[in-house]
Simulated assay, not measured.
Amino acid sequence: MTSLTGYELEAARAGDSRALARVLSVERSRVLRYAERHCSVHDVEDAVQETLLIVSRRIRQLRILEAFNGWLFRIVKRECDRMKRFWRSHVHDYAPERALEQPVVIPVDALRCDLEQALESLPAHYRQVIVLRDVEELTIAEICETLDLSREAAKARLHRARVLMREYLNP
């Protein structure tokens, strides 16, 4: 893993476009990992792009270089929260004029297809743990042994995977 030096951050802050490009390139993977934890599945890439754009525009305003990491992750979190608010206020405001008279029946093949797509949308480490638990029906202890994780880490991953699946299936 490549890391930045204080010199590169200082050069980017001073307006060096090559240093800024390097900062954005190096930090993209960290921003992506952080966004995967805090954003809805469909918003991750947008949050990463918006974050990098904000960093490129405002890095000159950063007063203390040691605060760069905290500043960067606050931007990612703020972007994820902004996108969640947008989805809640603009996408989920549909309300039919009258209730449906008959229940909606979803064919099994369509449900299977939706589940497959939801699983494919998960990051690999979440997909792996949810398949082991909910498809192969392994216990948490067996998952810990298989993936070499602590009990808490396995449970946290499983919880987050299920949350992401719910978000995907029930926007």
Rank of each mutant, 00 (worst) to 15 (best):
L149W: 03
M83D: 03
L62G: 01
M165V: 09
A124S: 12
C144P: 01
Y168V: 06
P103F: 11
V76R: 01
R160M: 15
H125V: 13
L62H: 02
L138N: 12
Y168I: 04
L122N: 04
E50Q: 09
D109I: 14
S3P: 00
C113K: 12
S29H: 09
A124K: 10
L119R: 10
I143D: 00
P123Y: 00
R151S: 14
R78A: 09
R88D: 15
L9K: 10
R37T: 09
E167Y: 11
S56F: 06
S29L: 13
Q49G: 02
R98F: 05
V91N: 02
E66I: 02
L147Q: 15
A156W: 08
M1A: 08
D16W: 04
E136C: 00
S89M: 06
M83I: 05
L100V: 00
R58G: 07
A110S: 07
D134W: 11
G15K: 07
L111S: 04
D109W: 10
R162A: 02
F68R: 12
R98I: 08
L122E: 03
Q49I: 08
S40D: 13
A35K: 08
Q128N: 14
V26T: 10
E145R: 15
E27H: 07
R78N: 14
Q49C: 07
V44A: 04
C144S: 10
E10Y: 06
V104G: 00
P123F: 00
T146L: 08
L138F: 05
S56I: 07
L132C: 03
A21Q: 13
M165H: 00
E97Y: 14
V41P: 09
F68L: 07
A124I: 10
D148Y: 12
T146R: 15
E136W: 03
A14D: 13
E152A: 15
Y34S: 11
V108Y: 08
I59H: 02
V91I: 11
R82V: 06
V23I: 06
H159W: 13
D114K: 11
H159D: 05
L169A: 00
A161F: 06
S40E: 15
A12I: 03
M165A: 05
L115V: 10
D81F: 08
I143C: 05
L138W: 06
T2E: 14
R160Y: 10
N69E: 15
E8I: 15
S150P: 01
E36I: 00
V44G: 05
R33E: 13
D114L: 14
R13Y: 10
H42E: 11
Y168P: 01
V135D: 03
P107M: 10
R22H: 15
T51H: 06
L111H: 09
L4S: 02
G15M: 05
R58F: 02
R63T: 05
S29T: 13
T51S: 10
E120R: 14
L62T: 07
T51A: 01
V105A: 04
E142A: 15
E66P: 00
V105Q: 06
R78D: 13
I143L: 02
A118G: 12
E116A: 15
A99K: 11
G6V: 02
R13T: 08
G6R: 04
A124H: 07
E101M: 04
P123E: 11
Y126H: 11
S3I: 13
R37M: 11
E136A: 03
R151F: 04
L132T: 08
A110L: 12
T51L: 01
